[in-house]
Design a protein around this nucleic acid. Structure first.
Ligand SMILES: [Mn+2]
Ligand SMILES: [Mn+2]
Ligand SMILES: [Zn+2]
Ligand SMILES: [Zn+2]
Lengths: 143, 143
DNA sequence: TACTAAATTGTAATCATTACAAATTAGAAA
DNA sequence: TTTCTAATTTGTAATGATTACAATTTAGTA
């Protein structure tokens, strides 16, 4: 069940703790780019002793070890992503959903830009998602 | 002095007010992608009656009218940019500087991605800026 | 099994942003 | 030019995300 996540932590010489395993599992099973509150309240149900601060601490540790990434796309809170492989993100300004955009970009692999050493690249698209466009049309037809 | 900014506001049928003019002027003359606090404290010197809330309100109005853009690159606060023309941004994790990256990207102009309607595109690069790399080298040689 | 550095926990700051109501004012109308 | 009013500005009080910190617990080692 958790072997996969145990391995990840051990490979990074991180202590294997329950909060870390649960957070990894949650992110692995929920590719919705959740914020801290979503992760916390989901895990709190199963592990009532869990502290919000632990979620913050653990996410920070996982991020420093490049096991997960944080997204600044929302502008008001960090969103977390365990998915590997370079991909970009779309945020719907209507429903707030954050969706993977699987495109490759010639600039994504560059390690130097304008003389600056690039360590991370994030491509953000903002607009109205497919689902919300459908709802919009429905409203127009019925209104 | 301010005619240029008066024109911008009038073209958008926005009321011409002192805070709006000063904010536009400040952003136009300081392409450093400042946060609210930087704008506020810079303008407060000349206009002691200025309120921080007004800076927030004005920036929001200018943004809604697409006169300026906000960047979520820092993750902790919004940064503002009046520059026109599509360009991307680099943030230095050492000194915090946010620098324009003048590259064109085939995905920047797309209005649809994965079926989603794209209204805004932001490309963020994170790493160590040119200046901080030089400092780093200096330290290494002298240390 | 005992030890210790690291992790977890809970509470109290802090910081950015928003809510709100009162005072002021830009621009339209008279 | 004066009057009027909706929009804007202002100050203060929430709110929400994140960080600081000290006490408690625990994973991994000896
Ligand atoms: Mn993703
Ligand atoms: Mn810029
Ligand atoms: Zn949507
Ligand atoms: Zn730098």
């Amino acid at each position: 069940m958790y072997e996969k996540y145990v391995k990840i932590l051990k490979d990074h010489t991180l202590k294997v703790t329950s909060p870390r395993l649960e957070i990894l599992k949650y992110l692995d099973e929920h590719h919705i780019h959740p914020n801290v509150e979503e992760i916390y309240s989901a895990l709190k149900k199963k592990h009532p002793s869990l502290s919000r601060t632990t979620v913050y601490n653990s996410l920070e540790t996982l991020k420093k070890n490049k096991i997960i990434r944080s997204l600044t796309i929302s502008g008001s809170e960090l969103r977390y992503d365990i998915e590997e492989g370079m991909h970009h993100h779309f945020i719907c300004t209507q429903c707030g959903a954050i969706i993977d955009i699987a495109i490759s970009c010639p600039n994504m692999d560059r390690t130097i830009q304008g003389g600056h050493r690039v360590e991370e690249v994030q491509g953000y698209f903002k607009g109205i998602c497919k689902k919300c466009q459908t709802k919009e049309k429905g409203r127009n037809n019925n209104g």
